[in-house]
């Protein structure tokens, strides 16, 4: 069926659907930005502004007392940081923590995720709950529990291993203990992320490969793991950036950075400078360096992940 339409006379304006007046259109167009504005403003004020102020503080010498004046010292705080051995040692310990945590935050969660993938519904929920529980328990609470488990006299760990180590008070083992306890509490969260990643993989690929005669191991190696790569990259990124932060409650409760600074990583060092030594300038300078280093690492990892990740779409 054809409907005859009268062509508009040349020169006359094209017919327009009734449009709302300009003012309302502007409001409607701006609406999504208005929804975002409060959230963005809050983050700007409470995360970026403090960082800017940290940069400012790093050029002063001050003991945090309102009664004493801040004296400008130029770059001397940075000079002190470089001259002191603390920061370098803490940086090395931070790397140790990160590397030590990777098995707990990436390797084991992937294994657990792959094994439990085939477990049926109810059992899976129970299992996940079991693995998830240590993540949920307040870090300070798990510190309390582990302090007793690692007790040099009556601790279960020493009994089971047949050792007589004073785990948290010997330089060799304290860092190891902190890594294991942190790993124990991070593993549940990482497993949850891996489960989510696995749930997001389309099962058709695996089935097609199986029809073609691929073994379970081959499917895992050549289909599942590559499709899981964005999740893995995400977990590595989290581990690198947040490891030191995760250890803080445990170090603060269990070792206070000791013995002989063996568990002092950059995160704890910064806290120590600012709130134990009350050296605002030094703490701020360390904060600036830490922020710059983390920023560089984060940017590098994000770029690397774009190269390495294998996407489904």
């Amino acid at each position: 069926m054809f409907v005859e339409v009268v062509a508009p006379a040349p020169g006359s304006p094209p017919p327009r659907a009734a449009r709302p007046p300009l003012g309302r259109r502007v409001v409607a167009g701006a609406q999504p930005y208005l929804y975002l504005a409060p959230a963005l403003a809050l983050l700007g004020v409470w995360t970026y502004r403090p960082l800017a102020q940290t940069v400012q503080l790093s050029f002063y010498s001050w003991n945090l007392l309102p009664s004493t004046p801040m004296t400008p010292v130029g770059l001397r705080n940075y000079q002190r940081l470089i001259d002191l051995p603390d920061l370098g040692q803490a940086a090395v310990r931070t790397v140790v923590v990160i590397v030590g945590l990777l098995p707990f935050s990436v390797v084991i969660p992937v294994l657990v995720g792959l094994v439990t993938r085939q477990v049926r519904d109810r059992a899976r929920v129970v299992y996940q709950a079991m693995v998830f529980a240590p993540t949920l328990v307040a870090p300070v609470a798990s510190a309390a529990v582990w302090q007793w488990l690692l007790d040099p006299g009556a601790g279960v760990v020493n009994k089971v291993l047949g050792t007589r180590l004073n785990w948290l008070h010997e330089t060799g083992s304290a860092q190891f203990a902190i890594i294991v306890i942190t790993g124990w509490s991070v593993l549940g969260f990482a497993t949850l992320v891996v489960s989510a990643g696995l749930a997001g993989i389309n099962g058709d690929y695996g089935e097609a490969a199986q029809l073609d005669g691929a073994s379970r191991g081959q499917i895992t190696r050549w289909i599942t793991l590559p499709l899981l790569s964005p999740t893995l990259v995400f977990l590595v990124l989290m581990t690198v950036l947040l490891s030191a932060q995760w250890t803080f409650p445990l170090i603060d409760t269990l070792t206070q950075g000791g013995p002989a600074r063996a568990t002092t990583n950059v995160y704890y060092l910064l806290w120590d400078y600012s709130f134990h030594s009350y050296d605002a300038g030094l703490g701020a300078a360390a904060g600036v360096l830490l922020f710059a280093a983390f920023g560089l690492v984060a940017a590098g990892l994000v770029r690397l992940s774009e190269r390495l990740s294998f996407h489904d779409d």
């Binding site: 959230a39 963005l40 983050l43 409470w46 995360t47 970026y48 502004r49 403090p50 960082l51 102020q53 940290t54 503080l57 945090l64 950036l241 030191a244 932060q245 803080f248 950059v266 995160y267 910064l270 806290w271 600012s274 709130f275 605002a280 703490g283 701020a284 904060g287 600036v288 830490l290 922020f291 983390f294 920023g295 984060a298």
Partner: peptide, 20 residues
């Protein structure tokens, strides 16, 4: 931008938050 704020070490900006 939202995510970037989570990538930063919280402790680096803690001093100004305290002073405020």
């Amino acid at each position: 931008f939202f995510l970037s704020t989570k990538m930063m070490p919280v402790v680096a900006g803690l001093l100004p938050v305290y002073l405020f």
